[in-house]
Write a protein that binds this DNA or RNA. Structure first.
Length: 389
RNA sequence: GCGUCGGUGGCGGAGUGGUCAAUCGCAACAGACUGUAAAUCUGUCGCCCAUUGGGCUACGUAGGUUCGAAUCCUACCCGACGCA
């Protein structure tokens, strides 16, 4: 079980400072939650993750179900013991994979689709495809869940609220998420309404399925439609059993959407329960996320970009695949206190590693990026404390 | 010295008379990435203009055959292997 205490509420925004108590320790909120999809923050050892200042990790039900299987994780003593991570943990329900393997894959869209990129799909393609009754190519929805094929073995598999919760209980993280459908940008109101009704049923089914004492968050959907977002928030809030809230789904065409949607949703949620924004957290978004009243949020950006050579620094992004950096003797970021920047590593070396595809390059940048994001979030917590956010 | 095979864009390597500025891979360069099927994906990649498109120079070098050659012929240069 978890406990959430609010330490301070901002007068300027919906931001708040808090302490989230879990069986594996406390999380000072707002906090960023790095992503450890397959029980690993890609490229880092668990002791290195600790060195980034990370407070909590989120792993993935879908991926761990496919490999190595939740039974292995349970037999190992649960996700924390399994991956030698001592801090708090979450598992995502696998709902997002339904999206990324379904509509997301069919249309090549992510959670945020720029107006320019969207122009390729809107209005006809997605809307026509997503009309009620249609199915994405790689997954099949039923009332009880989603059928899909394992990309590993080709075997037919099924994931629904019952299955997801059973798997998450075996994984044994401190916090679980209800199984939901994450709809793509461009979702019509009609499809969204239909999907939301199903996600709501799945929310109740997830709760009913829970046998353990792990915390369970219900998820708010509704895409870019104000009335549906609000309806969803009211519904999830009305269910007693949830220990917190997840806010998921697409947020429209730009990062402005994050603020707008949180603005619709968080006022309707019981303020005593923690709120987690699912899958958002570009550096430019974080202030809005906090101001919108989210307590935790996860994002693949620091880890994913690191492996593609991008470092986030106090002066913006730096691309470590660019040849000119081979001559730079500077650290990744002079203003950064991370073990990489203070440990003697220089841009020339890391650039060489990235260009030579040495895994150490991605590892060093991952360490730096997560440290940088954590430090940035800590700075914003300070801003809330001082009444500036 | 003789013989055989071969010399293609930064590299590797296709192509063996027209649809070839030349498949493909690598490198290089540019771009994308927000609950990670993502150490991935996309684009450019002879030169000069241009929006489709056009012009120029190119397949070791120099000639030749042909309406037309990276592709055929001759000589030369270079490389690998074999024989002396």
């Amino acid at each position: 079980m978890i406990e959430f205490k609010i330490a301070k509420k901002s007068k300027k925004s919906s931001a708040r400072l808090g302490i989230l108590k879990t069986p594996h320790g406390e999380v000072e909120t707002p906090a960023i939650v790095p992503v450890a999809t397959l029980a690993a923050v890609k490229a880092l050892r668990s002791d290195e993750i600790e060195a980034t200042g990370t407070q909590m990790l989120i792993s993935n039900t879908y991926h761990l179900h496919l490999q190595p299987g939740e039974g292995v994780v349970k037999a190992a003593g649960g996700i924390n013991t399994f991956m030698n991570w001592k801090g708090p943990s979450m598992t995502d329900s696998g709902g997002f994979q339904v999206f990324s393997l379904g509509w997301g894959r069919d249309f090549g869209v992510g959670k945020v689709t720029s107006a320019k990129a969207a122009a390729k799909y809107y209005p006809d393609k997605i809307e026509r495809a997503i009309e009620k009754g249609n199915q994405p190519k790689h997954v099949t929805f039923t009332e009880d869940g989603v059928k899909f094929r394992s990309p590993l073995t080709g075997d037919e598999m099924f994931l629904g609220p019952k299955e997801s919760i059973a798997i998450q209980e075996k994984l044994g993280a401190d916090i679980m998420f209800a199984f939901d459908e994450c709809t793509p940008p461009g979702t019509t109101r009609e499809y969204m309404a239909h999907s939301l009704a199903r996600t709501n049923r799945w929310a109740e089914a997830s709760l009913t399925a829970r046998k353990s004492k792990q915390a369970l968050y219900g998820i708010v959907q509704g895409s870019n439609h104000e009335d549906l977002r609000k309806e969803s928030a009211r519904f999830v809030n009305s269910i007693d059993g949830f220990d917190g809230f997840g806010i998921g789904g697409d947020i429209g065409e730009s990062r402005e959407g994050t603020k707008r949607i949180l603005g619709w949703v968080t006022p309707l949620l019981d303020e005593r329960k923690p709120r987690h924004l699912l899958g958002m957290g570009h550096i430019e978004d974080i202030e809005n996320i906090m101001a919108g009243g989210a307590d935790t949020f996860d994002c693949t950006v620091p880890t994913h970009y690191a492996r593609h050579g991008i470092a986030f620094t106090s002066k913006g992004r730096v691309d470590f695949t660019k040849a000119p950096l081979l001559k730079s003797k500077e650290p990744v970021d002079r203003a950064c206190g991370c073990p990489v920047c203070t440990g003697g590593y220089r841009r020339n070396y890391i650039t060489h590693l990235m260009r030579a595809q040495e895994i150490t390059g991605g590892a060093l940048l991952t360490l730096h990026n997560i440290w940088f994001f954590n430090a940035y979030v800590a700075k914003l917590r300070e801003k809330i404390r001082k009444g500036m956010l």
